[in-house]
């Protein structure tokens, strides 16, 4: 450790202070952007959440009324909470499980792995507007491809997007289709599992399932946690796809939290209420992530011996 030099006020050596200043200079773009585009908006949105504000007149302070009226008198609030939780709790775990299984399949001895990986990854990087118009067309109840096939087979058609009961599962299906990032991250993690562990297990006579259950899964739990958290955060904030695909319908079945928030802000010009909604969402996400982290101590395996 550096010896504290007499005369320096903060107890830092000259080179420590120089490096501190240089470090801060290099990160200053982010730091300034953080203050301007995150901290200041966070603070002012917290303030607006206690006001009535329609953009035309100055905000009027109304205390907790935005929050209390959301929870007590706004019937849509509980509808969007229900829709969002339904969607998030279905989509995020389903996305992680499907991505993990597909990555595990890609991680076996395989011809043409780059090809399959490319095919599974690609839907993740196309514009959401394209995802929306193409899937809206595919899932159309009268002339969409899927229902045309069903009709051709003399089977009943499925109202994927026009029946409230099917709308959310249909969105989950598209969510799974666009899980390419998670697949690629899982595949990288699976390839990092040391070969020797499998070989040692084989010597002990372990079957494929046992190797998967007792080596593959434990060693990839940190990445499972990572993808699960990313999936939850992403699904809570999902806006563009349901907005473009179903516009919140049918019968409010896909009126998600963020859609309702957007409507309040930019269609009804209730900026105060929208800010209150945003803060509630923020708190929900923080609590959710914290709980996941807390439980992770029980199921996430950190290999501290290597490295």
């Amino acid at each position: 450790m550096a010896t504290a030099q007499p005369g320096t006020k903060s107890g830092m050596t000259r080179s420590e202070r120089r490096r501190l200043i240089q470090g801060l200079l290099f990160i200053s773009p982010w730091l300034i952007g953080f203050l301007l585009f995150t901290i200041y908006p966070l603070a002012s949105s917290l303030y607006y959440s206690f006001t009535r504000y329609d953009l035309l007149r100055d905000p009027v302070f109304i205390g907790m009324r935005n929050y209390t009226s959301l929870v007590t008198t706004d019937s849509m609030f509980w509808v969007v909470i229900y829709n969002t939780l339904f969607y998030v709790l279905l989509a995020a775990p389903a996305g992680v499980v499907s991505a993990f299984l597909m990555a595990a399949l890609l991680n076996t001895k395989l011809m043409g792995r780059p090809f399959f990986r490319a095919v599974f990854f690609f839907p993740a990087i196309i514009p959401t507007i394209v995802t929306a118009v193409v899937w809206q067309f595919l899932l159309n109840v009268q002339f969409g491809l899927f229902n045309s096939i069903l009709q051709g087979l003399q089977l009943p058609t499925i109202p994927f997007l026009s029946n409230p009961a099917y709308a959310k599962p249909s969105l989950v299906m598209i969510y799974i289709w666009a899980q390419g990032n998670a697949i690629v991250i899982f595949l990288a993690a699976l390839q990092d599992v040391p070969r020797q562990l499998y070989e040692a297990a084989e010597v002990d006579g372990a079957r494929a399932w046992h190797k998967f259950r007792h080596i593959t899964i434990p060693l990839t739990t940190p990445v499972i946690l990572f993808n699960l958290i990313m999936g939850f955060i992403y699904a809570f904030q999902e806006f563009t796809l349901p907005w473009l695909l179903t516009g919140g319908g049918p019968a409010n079945a896909t009126e998600f939290y963020t859609i309702y928030l957007y409507r309040n802000a930019f269609q009804f010009l209730r900026m105060g209420k929208a800010s209150a909604l945003a803060w509630i969402l923020f708190i929900i996400i923080v609590v959710f992530t914290a709980v996941l982290f807390k439980t992770s101590a029980r199921w996430v395996f950190y290999n501290t011996e290597t490295e």
């Binding site: 585009f37 995150t38 200041y40 908006p41 966070l42 002012s44 949105s45 607006y48 809570f236 904030q237 806006f239 963020t258 928030l261 957007y262 802000a265 900026m271 929208a274 800010s275 909604l277 945003a278 803060w279 969402l281 923020f282 996400i285």
Partner: peptide, 8 residues
């Protein structure tokens, strides 16, 4: 969330 900073 994007939505928190969106309005301000």
């Amino acid at each position: 969330p994007f939505q928190v900073t969106m309005v301000p």
